[in-house]
Computed example of a mutant assay.
Amino acid sequence: MRRMLICGLAAFGWATTGLRAQPVPARDLWVFPLGAIFEPPALASEPGAGLWNPATSALSTGDRFRFGVASLTTGTAQGVDGQLLSAAWRRSTGTTVALSVARSAVGGLVRTDSDPQSLGNIPYHSSLVSLSAARSLLPKLTAGLAVRWRNGRADQLTRDAVAADLGILLHDLPWRDSRVALSSFLWRPGREVEDRPAVLAAADFRLAGTSRSREARLGYTESAVNRGARERGPYASARWDRVEGRAALVRATAGAGAATRFRSGLALYYARYAIGVAREEGISGLGPVYQFTLSSVIK
């Protein structure tokens, strides 16, 4: 959705009318799934953050801490870059408490006057701090709650807001070890029209294999922002011991525009570490997006 975002920013009437419809600037930066290119956002747990679904921050029995980092870049002069830091702690009660700090920005937006000469750059960025709690309510049901503080800046305008989100994860279901996840994102009760919360969903099942370390899975992901971008599509994954590969074909729509893009990634598991690299193909002359993730579990 990076291309939709940049195209929208290029029509820079946002400095007046666009911002009036966006109480906290740079909401569009949270349309792109930071830390979740490798996995569907509703099921993403690799960086260990639960950023998109607080239920996925829950740690397994026997795990005490999990730490994660993620970095995203387009590798072009004008594009999106983002960073994510996270930490999770499973308490003796079985509840996992997690904290994540994320930042996303668009660079290369040049300020001009009556001629093409640059007068400096226009800042457009957003920060998001999330505190979440998750735990198993039933043997196959995990639920999570997150409270988020978001700050956004567009040129000279800076604002912030507090949001609250709910997420659930059904896992280890009897039919082919199926999983189903559903969550909200940036939900501000009573402000849904102007602040555009999102709903995220994903489901998958085991296509072949007998365990999580040796299996192939097939699934479907969908997300929708209120009065905004939507994306949906199938994805597949395969893991053999320490190596896992994933691929997804996602169809995104925003207004009258639509685009199909391909995501792929590779993860390596060694001891208590997981290292992931993912790529999204660029379209319309824009370069690809690259994501790096690293997470570690301490027992």
Rank of each mutant, 00 (worst) to 15 (best):
G50E: 05
G50L: 01
G50T: 03
G50S: 10
W52C: 05
W52L: 09
W52E: 03
W52P: 04
N53K: 07
N53M: 12
N53W: 06
A55K: 00
A55C: 12
A55V: 09
T56M: 14
S57G: 15
S57P: 04
A58G: 00
S60T: 11
S60D: 15
S60K: 12
G62I: 03
G62Q: 12
G62W: 06
G62K: 05
F65S: 00
F65H: 03
R66E: 07
R66A: 08
F67S: 05
F67D: 01
V69T: 15
V69Y: 03
V69W: 05
V69F: 09
A70L: 04
A70P: 01
A70V: 01
S71T: 07
S71W: 07
T73F: 13
T73Y: 11
T74C: 13
G75M: 10
G75S: 10
T76C: 05
A77K: 09
A77W: 08
A77L: 09
Q78T: 15
G79N: 09
G79E: 02
G79T: 05
V80M: 08
V80S: 00
D81P: 00
D81F: 12
D81T: 12
G82C: 11
L84V: 09
L85Q: 08
L85W: 11
S86A: 13
S86H: 00
S86E: 02
A87C: 08
A88H: 01
W89C: 02
R90S: 00
R91W: 14
T93I: 06
T93F: 11
G94Y: 06
G94R: 12
T95I: 14
T95A: 13
T96Q: 02
V97K: 02
A98E: 00
A98N: 01
A98D: 06
L99F: 08
V101S: 06
V101P: 04
A102S: 15
A102L: 00
R103L: 02
S104P: 04
S104I: 06
A105G: 11
V106L: 09
V106N: 03
V106M: 06
G108S: 13
G108T: 11
L109H: 06
L109F: 11
V110H: 00
V110S: 10
V110Q: 12
R111V: 14
R111S: 15
T112S: 13
T112L: 07
D113T: 08
D113P: 01
S114L: 14
D115N: 15
P116I: 12
P116L: 15
P116Y: 10
P116D: 13
P116T: 14
P116V: 13
Q117N: 13
Q117P: 00
